[in-house]
Nucleic acid binder design. Structure first.
Length: 603
RNA sequence: GCCCAAGUAGCUCAGAGGUAGAGCAACGCCUUGGUAAGGCGUAGGUCGUGGGUUCGAUUCCCACCUUGGGCUCCA
């Protein structure tokens, strides 16, 4: 979602309009037009900032007299916008002396604009102002020549936003809209939004009976039988590959005495995000929000030699975090989740090599799903622990590795976004409507091993403190599955599908057909495939096929009297992902499906 | 947590100050059908929860819970 707007980009000397009109210019102008409409409909409205964003634009407002907009108001605003657009109002550019502009906006009661001017650097002597009819905005432009260029737009929603993006500030209201060059482009965009809604993992989760959220457990999914199969295949994949790469699984308690969280620092830094359980007058337990402290407990069970390092633990345990209520979002933001989490204890000189191996692994897991992903390097934040030299060394190493693996365009650096104990690399994917979600994360940590007093004996017999890498590749299984469901629009890869093949008898009262179905089911199951028979009485074959399609069963085999009588062991297979049917010998079918499962082909 | 909206049958939704309706799903009967919905019928709701106003509330008001869109947050 949009970054908060930098005031400096909004104010200053006007920019020259490029020869070509861009969508950004169009959308920025649409934002002005919307603000003009709002100011006409709600005299005394104050306007804040209104930039173009990906796919559209927004503008922030404060209406007089504590009035609040609702989505029902959008239609009237849009209508007024169309009236203004039809008047061919020119977007007139002016350069004003800074003080004159300040007086102008102060006189209009536009306190946000005055605040923006006051925050400009002291050497800014003049600013750009645009007029559209009676509407005046502090703005560098550029803009469309006149309002008649604006026709293909739609206002979408209203949201509350904190002024300047700071939750200590009062809330304004933001209207989001979208604008395009042509009506056809707008229609296509609206159709994409509709398709995204059809792909929404919350809808598919209900329709495919994968998971459920109950009012008594907000943010904590129930996994239904189909969902458990999918979840388990994903976890099984993680266990198998991680095991082959030297990770050893451990399981630790879900709740620990708060003394553990005091050692780890969570009690001081993370308590407001933890579920806390008072047990008696002296004892308080905390439900674990992360696996790392218990990994350190396990590490410390005995002395370690440098020869054992890197020591890799895999931890799939259930975690709970008390996320703020407004942030929950289906599987993509939960309060209960499990991660393919791991903690790697290693010597500092091993870090770079280990990161190489980790980035290889990440590629392996994400390529399996043909999922697009990108990296984000978070560097030293304010209030970091440790010394600058160690941080610099670690960041330089991560940067080198990322450039080698992802290329210069394959990642972004976000300064100050590292964890307080070390820099981190996050793996980002997108949901159906393009929202970016953090999945995996690789965090380098020099602090926690120190807090827990972890040691190893180096080659010269000295005790040293290991570093730790926190690594989750999927991140939370819940979130990753949510992204996968949307990515595949519910058509999960065959190896993950709850039901892989469903069998439908053409005649369900013919003994030989039913025997044929039972025999086929047996042979498919013997090959290790998950098979269901759809023989609900009273349903016609076509209805059963439709039922399979809606439940996203990858392969559907229809078997009837003609097949049985032909006796050639050939069946007709419907491929619901590619569409269409084809005839195949049963032996051939089994080979193909087991091969598709074994290779974990995504489609 | 904050702003806006929503919560009516398993699902999608309509409705209205006089205690509710449709389609699909479910169930029953008929239909035995060759690749995305066969027909008829039956049953199903304390209208999110708790208060208040009213002769009467599911409808109006208040609080709370949950959900959706955003904001903030995401260690």
């Amino acid at each position: 979602m949009p970054e908060e707007v930098d005031d400096a980009a909004e104010a200053g000397l006007p920019l020259e309009a490029p020869a070509e009109l861009s969508l950004d210019i169009l959308r920025h102008s649409a934002a002005h037009l919307m603000a003009a409409a709002v100011c006409e409909l709600y005299p005394g409205a104050e306007y804040d900032v209104g930039p173009a964003i990906e796919d559209g634009f927004f503008y922030n407002f404060r209406l007089p007299g504590d009035r609040h907009l609702t989505e029902a108001d959008l239609a009237a605003i849009e209508t007024r916008m169309r009236e203004l657009a039809a008047r061919r109002l020119p977007f007139r550019r002016e350069v004003m002396a800074r003080d004159d502009a300040r007086k102008l906006f102060e006189g209009m009661g536009q306190s946000f604009k005055v605040a923006i001017i006051d925050r400009l650097a002291s050497d800014v002597r003049s600013v750009g102002v645009y007029r559209t009819g009676d509407f005046i905005d502090l703005c560098r432009g550029p803009h469309v020549p006149d309002s008649s260029r604006l026709s293909a737009f739609r206002l979408l929603r209203v949201a509350g936003v904190y002024w300047r993006g700071d939750e200590r500030n009062p809330q304004l209201q933001r209207i989001y809209g979208t604008a395009w060059f042509t009506q056809a482009d707008l229609d296509a965009h609206l159709e994409r939004l509709a398709e995204a809604e059809r792909r929404d993992h919350r809808r598919l989760g209900r329709e495919l009976e994968l998971f459920h959220f109950d009012d008594t457990a907000p943010g904590m999914p129930y996994w239904l039988p189909n969902g458990v199969v999918v979840l388990n295949t994903l976890m099984g994949f993680a266990r198998e590959v991680r095991g082959a790469h030297g990770y050893r699984e451990v399981i630790s308690p879900i709740i620990n005495d708060k003394r553990l969280w005091e050692v780890s620092g969570h009690w001081d830094h993370y308590r407001e995000n933890m579920f806390i359980i008072p047990v008696d007058d002296q004892t308080v337990y905390g439900v674990k929000p992360m696996n790392c402290p218990n990994a350190h407990v396990i590490y410390n069970l005995r002395r370690h030699s440098y020869r054992e390092l890197p020591l890799r633990y895999l931890q799939l345990d259930t975690l709970h975090r008390y996320e703020r209520s407004g942030t929950l979002h289906g599987l993509l933001r939960t309060r209960k989740f499990q991660q393919d989490d791991s903690h790697i204890f290693l010597a500092e000189e091993q870090i770079e090599d280990e990161y190489e191996r980790i980035l290889e692994l990440i590629g392996l897991f994400y390529r399996t799903f043909e999922l697009e992903y990108s990296f984000r390097l978070g560097t030293r934040p304010d209030g970091f622990l440790g010394d600058v030299e160690t941080w610099d060394r670690a960041e330089a190493a991560l940067l080198r590795i990322l450039e080698r693996h992802a290329g210069r365009d394959g990642f972004v650096v976000e300064a100050g976004e590292g964890a307080f104990y070390g820099p981190k690399i996050d793996i980002l994917t997108r949901d159906a409507i393009g929202r970016s979600w953090q999945n995996g994360t690789v965090q380098l940590d020099f602090q926690l091993p120190r807090r827990f007093g972890c040691e190893y004996v180096d080659a010269s017999g000295e005790s040293r403190t290991p570093a730790v890498i926190h690594l989750a590749i999927y991140g939370s299984f819940e979130r990753f599955l949510g992204v996968l469901i949307e990515h595949f629009a519910g058509h999960l890869p065959l190896w993950m599908a709850a039901v892989q093949v469903e069998l439908i008898p053409v005649q369900d009262d013919v003994e030989s057909v039913l025997a044929g179905i039972a025999d086929l089911a047996g042979r498919l199951r013997e090959a290790g495939l998950r098979v269901a028979v759809n023989d609900r009485p009273g349903e016609r074959m076509q209805a059963r096929i439709r039922d399979c399609e809606l439940r996203r069963v990858p392969y559907v085999v229809v078997l009837g009297r003609r097949d049985v009588e032909r006796g050639d062991d050939v069946v007709t297979v419907r491929d619901t992902r590619r569409g269409g049917t084809e005839s195949r010998g049963v032996a051939d079918l089994i080979t193909r499906l087991t091969e598709e499962v074994a290779s974990r082909r995504p489609r």
